[in-house]
Nucleic acid binder design. Structure first.
Lengths: 205, 205
DNA sequence: TGTACATCAGTGAACGCGCGTTCACTGATGTAC
DNA sequence: TGTACATCAGTGAACGCGCGTTCACTGATGTAC
């Protein structure tokens, strides 16, 4: 049965969102197309009217998540540009760790993305490069050149690794998992080059 | 056909090693038991004479890898205890990034281990806690208490995240992938608390 | 504005395939005498 | 030391199952007149 263009667009959105949520929670290989389509309120055949394959849908879901997260992170906080401390508080939080479905896709898929097709790894790489740039802008203006860039790379990498490892250890040792988040907020905060902000993070809120 | 105890023990070893290699390369869901057994020179039924399930074999392979890596890392370098710089040079190398099969299982499975059974995540967590302790011992003696512990947690997390992200970005941007390794060696080296060593890392070898 | 009809998003049965696991069987090993 | 036989690691066919994808069909939409 044919459906209105509006409804068809809504269905496409529902597929992207269901795929994103389920893939972040269980991994690409951990969800089937039937389940994704059912979650979107459709039958499995409908996917192929919108996307050429499961992988194409996964790629679309990844891009969608990375765009959304980029906007969320860079949105002004109380009218001002977010600081590195704001980013760390947001990203390295228990809420983020415990919410696979709505969290950052990079933390959810870091170690498996290299095994997927080029479409997925190219989109992942773009998203990571963008995160590094956001981190670089948040560092103190007195830092320059290679040092500034390297700190931004280290912060971006450690944030993603931190959430991934906090999740990996959460079941077997909740205390260690929490410790990872606290330690990274503090140690990475000290890399901002801004001594006032570093002191703020050191208080360990 | 029955086989000598010696041969049976060798077959068990071959299964653990084949499983470890293939799972690190392609993920647990990316390899079948038939392929693991074929790689070990056996038929698929043989697995169940040695292990109750595929997951039990995967858990054994994970423990085996983490023990081996722990021994490799802590072995004295030229008669002396390895420094943090030695660990970073070893772990954050292009060789490690490019050798999934023989590399550290934590970097290969960080983001997917939380979705597996408890046997696997408990062993992963033990291995990570051990890595944190090794890192802690390599920091300068002047660092103490919570600061020392937090730096060790940050270093261990960023090392694993660094290799995972260097791999994730390697296909789409080899330059960015290399940059991650260099940046982490340098920035993490500066966390050792040993200014001589930090300067050494800063030269960016 | 009203009617006729081509379009095409979505349905659901069917495709071949590989998965993890089971099981009756084999036959060299290793033990009991 | 030599013989008889129970053991059990490994074989390979078979199990049910869910996977991603295809396809003939449906019928409301939206266009052409």
């Amino acid at each position: 049965l044919k459906v209105s263009k509006q409804q068809s667009a809504r269905n496409r959105r529902a597929l992207i969102e269901a795929a994103g949520r389920l893939i972040r929670e269980r991994g690409i290989d951990g969800v089937g197309v039937a389940e994704i389509c059912a979650e979107a309120g459709l039958t499995h055949g409908a996917l192929y009217a919108q996307f050429p394959s499961k992988e194409a849908l996964a790629a679309e879901a990844l891009t969608d998540n990375l765009h959304r997260k980029h906007e969320e992170m860079t949105a002004p906080r109380a009218g001002a540009e977010p600081t590195l401390g704001d980013y760390l508080t947001y990203y390295l939080s228990r809420q983020h760790r415990d919410n696979l479905a709505e969290g950052c896709a990079m933390a959810a898929s870091a170690s498996e993305i290299g095994r997927q097709g080029e479409a997925l790894s190219a989109r992942f790489t773009d998203g990571f490069a963008q995160l590094v740039e956001v981190m670089e802008r948040s560092l103190d203006d007195r830092l320059t050149g290679a040092d500034r860039r390297q700190r931004a790379l280290a912060v971006a990498t450690a944030m993603i690794g931190g959430v991934a490892l906090a999740r990996a250890t959460a079941k077997a040792s909740p205390a260690l998992s929490d410790e990872i988040l606290v330690a990274l907020r503090r140690v990475l905060g000290q890399l901002s080059g801004n001594s006032r902000e570093a002191a703020h993070q050191s208080e360990g809120r």
